[in-house]
């Protein structure tokens, strides 16, 4: 979960690998690289290529038609809507949780840290079921919601809630180790210089963790768009209304509409690739900043 932290050492590691004294014989190196590469091709590159070939098998026109189908378009819209709501909320939650955990001492801190990890620990299906149990027709608030004509489960709010639940650890998990390492000296310095809490947050804390924060947001976004299990339980699979992209792919596939299924899947795969590219860029920038200041201080 601390990609930013480890990547800062990649420069150092590459230096070590280059030194002849510590490197393995050539055949060992090629064997290891070969194993890693064939594993990657078998389990990652081939499926990825398959998605795009299957999507385009019946020609580009079919591909475009499949994507511009109103149901597919609704699924894309809903996926983005869920992400657009979940990501900012989890950004705010993640920053405040990390701030509270790293800058203050209070009782129950370790419980809070454990609770943040809960969505990682429970199966997403259970996460979805929780919301069905709370807001469903037979659930705790079921009768109240029905009386007031509020729909949560099997509607858009349920999907957004489930998405928020499964993605809320990412930002906090990314920030906590980073902010712990930085300590609270700079914040105290700001305080003595007369800054208010807001000024300290905006001018000192956030600029110091910006790359870690961005990294957490990218991970949150990727998960929000790709989530299947939790969303599947609360969705109800109503076409054009409560289907997100991953759910829509499943429905199309179950109907033997492979071309359309792969077309939507290819869009998800594309999103994943963009996410990876962004993630790599952020890691590279963070590592560059870190090594710049390291070199300068030597």
């Amino acid at each position: 979960m601390s990609g930013i932290n480890t990547s800062q050492y990649s420069r150092y590691q590459s230096k070590v690998a280059r030194s002849r004294a510590t490197s393995e014989p050539a055949w060992v190196r090629y064997l290891l690289i070969g194993i890693a590469l064939s594993f990657l091709s078998l389990f990652l590159f081939v499926p990825l290529a398959a998605v795009f070939t299957e999507a385009l098998r019946k020609g580009f026109d079919t591909y475009v038609t499949a994507l511009s189908d109103p149901d597919a378009f609704a699924a894309i819209k809903l996926t983005f809507l869920a992400a657009v709501i979940a990501v900012p909320l989890n950004l705010v939650f993640g920053v405040s949780a990390a701030w509270a955990i790293t800058k203050f001492e209070f009782k129950g801190k370790s419980i809070l840290i454990t609770l943040i990890d809960l969505p990682f620990a429970v199966s997403p299906v259970i996460a979805g079921l929780i919301y069905v149990l709370i807001f469903g027709a037979q659930g705790w608030f079921g009768s109240y919601l029905i009386d007031n004509d509020i729909k949560i489960v099997f509607a858009v709010p349920g999907i957004v809630l489930a998405t928020i639940f499964v993605t809320f650890p990412f930002v906090a998990r990314e920030l906590i180790p980073l902010m712990q390492a930085q300590g609270k000296d700079e914040e105290e310095a700001g305080l003595v210089l007369g800054a208010s809490g807001w000024q300290i947050l905006w001018r000192i804390t956030l600029p110091n963790v910006k790359w870690g924060l961005l990294y957490g947001v990218i991970l949150t976004n990727a998960r929000a768009m790709g989530e299947f299990g939790a969303v599947s339980v609360v969705s109800g699979h109503i076409r054009g209304l409560t289907n997100t992209m991953p759910l829509h792919v499943e429905i199309l596939y179950n109907e033997y509409n492979y071309a359309a299924a792969f077309a939507v899947a290819s869009l998800l795969a594309l999103l994943a690739l963009v996410t990876l590219a962004l993630k790599t860029f952020v890691e590279w920038r963070a590592a560059r900043d870190a090594s710049l200041s390291e070199n300068a201080s030597q």
Binding site: D185, E186, E188, A189, L191, G194, S196, I204, P207, N208
Partner: peptide
């Protein structure tokens, strides 16, 4: 409050704002 005390504080490890 700290900010109303009009004190200057130099921290052991300086705590300069690194960015």
């Amino acid at each position: 409050q700290v900010r109303e005390r009009e004190v200057g504080f130099v921290f052991q490890h300086y705590a300069l704002f690194r960015h």
